[in-house]
Amino acid sequence: MTSATPDAEAMKAFNKSIVDEFRANAGKVGGQFANADLLLLTTTGAKSNQPRLTPVAYLRIDGMMIIVGSYAGADINPAWVHNLRANPLARVEVGIDVFDVTARELPAAERDEIFPKVVAVAPGFADYQARTGRVIPLFELQRV
């Protein structure tokens, strides 16, 4: 089963409201993300070379900070995946803490080992994986 790609303008507006709420409340947001661990990820656009800001859920698995390129189960990766593959240096905001990271995409074997642990913590990612034919990538964010 495949999933439609989210509408770009709707996603932009939705993400802006999450970013605004995140920054106004020291990293806390309500609604569907009320109990989620969110960070703000600033990547460098792969084509534009411009900063790109995206709210992303993160998980701590086996001592690693992991982000999941699920895009709600769409058949394409979120833009930040493409950006990190082109330039793995990024900046994150976690609560009021801001720091630089290097993103490391987990290779297939490691991704396959870690993904069940991701699903154990956040079962929704299993639904997203079931909606798409692509393998949802996982990235470890390592503080620089």
Rank of each mutant, 00 (worst) to 15 (best):
E105H: 04
L41S: 05
E113A: 14
F14I: 02
H82L: 12
N25I: 13
E110Q: 11
R134V: 07
A86G: 06
A34Y: 00
V29I: 11
Q129S: 09
R143L: 10
E9M: 04
A86V: 05
A46Q: 12
T44A: 05
N15Y: 01
E93N: 03
P137D: 12
A13R: 02
A13C: 02
R131C: 10
N49G: 12
P55A: 03
G124M: 13
I136N: 03
G31E: 02
A74V: 02
P51T: 10
Q129A: 07
A74Y: 02
A26P: 00
L89M: 11
Q129W: 05
P107C: 08
L84P: 02
T44D: 08
T2A: 15
K28A: 03
I61Q: 03
N77S: 13
A34H: 00
D100F: 12
P107W: 09
L41P: 01
L89R: 15
A126H: 04
A120H: 09
G45F: 11
I114D: 04
K28H: 14
V19F: 14
V94R: 07
P116K: 01
A122Q: 15
S48I: 07
I136T: 03
E140Q: 15
F125L: 10
P51K: 03
K12P: 01
T42E: 09
M11N: 09
G95W: 14
A103E: 07
V119Q: 09
A13F: 08
P55N: 06
V135I: 15
R91K: 15
D7M: 01
E93G: 03
A72K: 02
G95N: 00
R143C: 06
G27M: 06
R131K: 15
K47R: 15
G27A: 14
F115D: 01
